[in-house]
Simulated assay, not measured.
Amino acid sequence: MREKVEEVLNKVRPYLQRDGGDVELVDVKDGVVHVRLKGACRG
């Protein structure tokens, strides 16, 4: 499942980066995805 989540994040990452941010996959546990937003996306 982690690989599939990474694939999806890689598809949306360019849009976040264009806006000055990024996203990091922290964990996938029991069907719950934990991400960390970075840069302009933070908060």
Rank of each mutant, 00 (worst) to 15 (best):
L16K: 04
L25A: 12
R2E: 15
R13W: 07
R13F: 02
R18M: 06
V5L: 02
V8I: 14
V12G: 10
Q17G: 02
R42W: 15
C41D: 11
R36N: 12
K29Y: 04
E7Y: 03
Q17R: 12
L9I: 13
V28Q: 08
D22W: 12
V8W: 13
G39C: 08
G31Y: 06
D19F: 09
D22C: 10
K38A: 13
K29T: 10
C41V: 15
N10V: 00
L37S: 09
L16H: 00
Y15N: 03
V28W: 07
V5N: 00
R42Q: 15
V23F: 01
V26H: 12
Q17L: 03
R2K: 11
V26Y: 02
R36G: 00
R2T: 13
K4L: 08
D27P: 01
C41M: 15
E3C: 09
M1W: 11
R2P: 02
V5P: 00
D19S: 14
K4N: 14
L9Y: 01
K38C: 12
D19L: 05
E24I: 04
G21D: 06
R13K: 08
G20M: 03
L25G: 09
V33F: 01
K4V: 07
A40Q: 13
L9G: 06
V23E: 05
N10L: 06
C41W: 06
R13G: 03
E24L: 00
K11I: 12
E24K: 11
V35S: 00
R13V: 10
V8Q: 15
R18G: 00
D27N: 07
G31T: 07
V12H: 01
C41H: 08
Y15S: 07
K29A: 11
R42L: 15
K38N: 04
D27M: 01
R42K: 15
R13E: 11
E7D: 12
D30P: 10
G21M: 08
D22P: 12
V26C: 04
H34C: 05
K4C: 07
D19Q: 03
L9H: 11
G21S: 09
K38H: 13
V26T: 10
C41P: 10
V26M: 03
Q17E: 12
V28Y: 02
H34D: 06
K38P: 07
P14L: 09
L37K: 04
V35H: 01
V5Y: 03
V5W: 06
G21C: 05
E3F: 10
K4D: 06
M1Y: 13
R42N: 14
L37Y: 05
G20K: 04
D22Y: 14
D27F: 12
H34G: 03
V8P: 05
E24R: 06
V12C: 09
D19G: 06
K38Y: 01
R36P: 03
N10H: 08
L16R: 00
E3W: 10
V8S: 14
P14H: 11
V35A: 04
V35P: 02
D27H: 10
V33D: 08
D19C: 07
R42A: 15
D22S: 13
Q17T: 03
Y15L: 09
R2M: 10
V32A: 05
G39Y: 09
L25H: 03
D30W: 13
D27Y: 06
G31N: 01
G20W: 02
N10K: 10
D19R: 13
G43H: 04
L37I: 12
